[in-house]
Design a protein around this nucleic acid. Sequence first.
DNA 1: ACATCTATATAGTATTACTAGGTAGATGGT
DNA 2: ACCATCTACCTAGTAATACTATATAGATGT
Lengths: 113, 113
Amino acid sequence: MLALEDLTEMLKGILEGCVLEIISRKETYGYEIVKKLNSLGFEDVVEGTVYTILLRLEKNKLVNIQKKPSKIGPPRKFYTLNEAGRNQLQTFWRKWDFIASKINELKENKDGN
Amino acid sequence: MLALEDLTEMLKGILEGCVLEIISRKETYGYEIVKKLNSLGFEDVVEGTVYTILLRLEKNKLVNIQKKPSKIGPPRKFYTLNEAGRNQLQTFWRKWDFIASKINELKENKDGN
DNA sequence: ACATCTATATAGTATTACTAGGTAGATGGT
DNA sequence: ACCATCTACCTAGTAATACTATATAGATGT
């Protein structure tokens, strides 16, 4: 993997949406979400970052939470999206599609309009 | 245009790149950049935002600046990219392409990987 | 004299991802 | 018994960025 520089600033407002999307797929928990993001390509995303997002989602009442024991470590907090969470996820993708299309428009428009 | 909500957070780390790209096309100034961004679709981007970015670019020595009088208002500060600015722009697009591809991968992968 | 458009600047705010720690359960090796 | 390691969660403080709100000022038209 080519060493790409810091993506921190560009992930703002995007990481939370990614977490929502991952949770929407199947009931999951923080540690697993971190691994998922890492394997997706966001290798520098660490636990502290994801846990703050998860606590924010909880505070904003976008998720349901269920604690379950694990056989290989401490208990896990499993997250699922509630109705508000699914709405938020939809909103995220609408924003993403909008921004991505506009940015690509700017990028391709090399002639300069 | 459908009223799309606040894009602020998702623009973090992206707006500066857009400004760099716009400057790279042709010598231009703040007020004109604002109008360009607005017409691109980022209608809520206001002057204060762009001027802080431009002052940051200047501070980081990514631009050359030339002040010129205007016939229809106060003098304009015209910006062009220097070598460092062009490098920064290239870096921005590399980051963007990386993130956009990963996000779209996540988005399309509805089966769950 | 006033409004409007053009044009730049800046102090303060909110939000977000990250840093840098800490706590703790389970397993395996020495 | 001790320690390292992996799993799993939490949190106080920091840095960076876009935005809010406001100020200043030149030029034009009424």
